[in-house]
Design a protein around this nucleic acid. Structure first.
Length: 453
RNA sequence: GCGAGUGUAGCUCAGUUGGUUAGAGCGCCAGUUUGUGGUACUGGAUGCCGUCAGUUCGAAUCUGAUCACUCGCCCCA
């Protein structure tokens, strides 16, 4: 008789929220949107599906394994795995219609077919900002990106008590110049960068053994470790401890390293005017292997180190090369909305109280079918003449049930339309928080609602 | 791609060395005189014990396979 029912559980790595949780997430999302827009970024959207050749134009081998890829007819298609690559295509496509420097934000879902785990999803939201321009882009735009993200996270932090956070900043040119100096490139360079990127996560012993295995040159190995000890002082530049002076004599002749150090200086000097301790230099931040060419940064919450980086990005120079002859360079970053907030919302760390708005402000309750028509009119009047979220239910149930419903959806006011109210041309307004109730004319009811919601 | 763990009510889980009608809390439904919610009290429903096979007189419990989920690793533009 009863047929086998299909399992309704959501796919691994995908997320569904209940209405209360979704409401919180949406509040956070629009807060981010507002913050980006306020900083002068404009919204765009791009398709979730792109031609595979577009997405893979710049990608390395490992990237492809993570992408949801399929064919439809003769088309080789893929789901976007980030928002930056589609943005590069977008800029190339609409080059003539855009005004440069172009600052855009994009908050949307992206897809990665990797094994799901804590805080890592297969479908998740990224909240991106990028600035692109033709030919060149002042390093001050790197500052614009980092400071806008910092400001946005700060806003969220106040809203949800995320606590303090630090942004770790570095510049790829320093490492690129360093490796050029010692003719280290290709796979070996990637392998060394990989272990540098992991430095913060592993013990010093593991780092040392891994590093020497990959570098295979005691002198270079020594210099890499020493490089982490250099200090960068705004207005002064790199400060090399006395004992290392002879080791780093080559820096003065290495244009790329010098440039990276200079850029890092400018970035830090600017950010210092915002906060003395929020922004720190950390040369172990290198990020992806081929993508970034200058400033790179990652963000960590002090109260939630297990989340990993919740916001990151950097400078890229050649992202549009495969789509256009124009020389377009850019800098961008994103906040991992899903990684950051889904665990907090699901664990109840962020509740509706923090957000302090309710999903329904006014609920109209007609008692029985005879009252439906009148209630419909009243509901429309409230809807049209106030800014409040107003709803109505048509249920032939005991009044007690209607009240229970109102309670469950968190209505702040209930407007009762029963036989008496219809007969007397009145409504009964009940404040669900205080329990106070009065039977008045519709206009008085509107006044009561406006005063207190 | 690799490794480990877990699948029992809507949810979170308990379930003894294999033993007869399968348990709790929360939630849900109904009531505590039918036009009043949250709190309290009373009562009730709910399960192919993930699926398939095997061992056994007998399996939620043991074995195998399979699927799903979770957590790590790899990787993370």
């Amino acid at each position: 008789m009863s047929k086998k029912q299909i399992n309704t559980k959501v796919l691994s790595g995908f997320v569904e929220l209940l209405p209360e949780q979704q409401f919180i997430f949406d509040c956070i999302k629009s807060r981010v949107e507002l913050s980006y827009a306020k900083a002068g970024y404009v919204a765009i959207d791009t398709p979730v599906i792109e031609k595979s050749e577009v997405l893979f134009a710049k990608a390395g081998g490992d990237t492809e394994k993570q992408v949801y890829r399929f064919t439809k007819g003769d088309n080789d298609l893929s789901l976007r795995f980030d928002l930056t690559v589609p943005f590069a295509r977008y800029v190339s496509e609409h080059y003539n219609d855009l005004v440069f420097p172009f600052k855009r934000y994009h908050i949307a879902k992206v897809y990665r077919g990797e094994r799901a785990q804590k805080g890592r999803y297969r479908e998740f939201y990224q909240a991106d900002i990028d600035i692109v321009s033709e030919d060149s882009l002042s390093v001050m735009y790197d500052v614009d990106i980092i400071s806008t993200l910092a400001k946005t996270i700060e806003n969220l932090s106040n809203l949800c008590s995320l606590g303090n956070f630090k942004m770790k900043i570095s510049n790829r040119k320093i490492w690129d110049g360093f490796f050029e100096e010692f003719s280290i490139s290709g796979e070996q360079k990637a392998s060394i960068m990989n272990i540098i990127d992991k430095k913060a996560k592993i013990t010093a012993e593991v780092f040392d053994t891994e590093l020497s295995e990959r570098v295979k040159n005691p002198n270079v190995e020594k210099l890499i470790k020493e490089l982490f000890e250099l200090e960068f002082i705004p207005n002064v530049g790199v400060s090399i401890p006395e004992k290392y002076h002879s080791d780093f004599a080559f820096i003065n002749d290495n244009e790329k390293m010098k440039q990276g150090i200079r850029e890092l200086e400018v970035v830090m000097k600017s950010l210092e005017t915002i906060s003395k301790d929020r922004f720190v230099i950390d040369l172990s931040i290198v990020r992806g292997l081929d993508y970034y060419t200058g400033t790179v940064f990652e963000t960590f919450l002090e109260n939630y180190p297990e989340f990993g980086s919740v916001s990151s990005g950097g400078r890229y120079e050649n992202l549009c090369d495969n789509y256009t002859d124009k020389k377009i360079c850019g800098v961008g970053g994103s906040i991992g909305l899903s990684r950051l907030f889904i665990p907090l919302i699901e664990s109840g760390a962020i509740s509706e109280n923090n957000i302090s708005k309710s999903m329904i402000d006014v609920l109209v309750l007609p008692q029985g079918e005879n009252c439906y028509f009148r209630a419909f009119e009243i509901k429309n009047k409230i809807l049209n003449e106030t800014i409040y979220k107003t709803s109505i239910i048509y249920e032939n149930k005991k009044f007690k049930k209607l009240m229970e419903y109102a309670n469950k959806v968190g209505a702040k006011y209930v407007v009762i339309i029963g036989e008496d109210e219809v007969a007397n041309n009145t409504v009964s307004v009940k404040n669900m928080i205080t329990g106070e109730q009065q039977t008045v004319s519709i206009n008085d009811a509107l006044e009561i609602i406006k005063e207190k919601v």
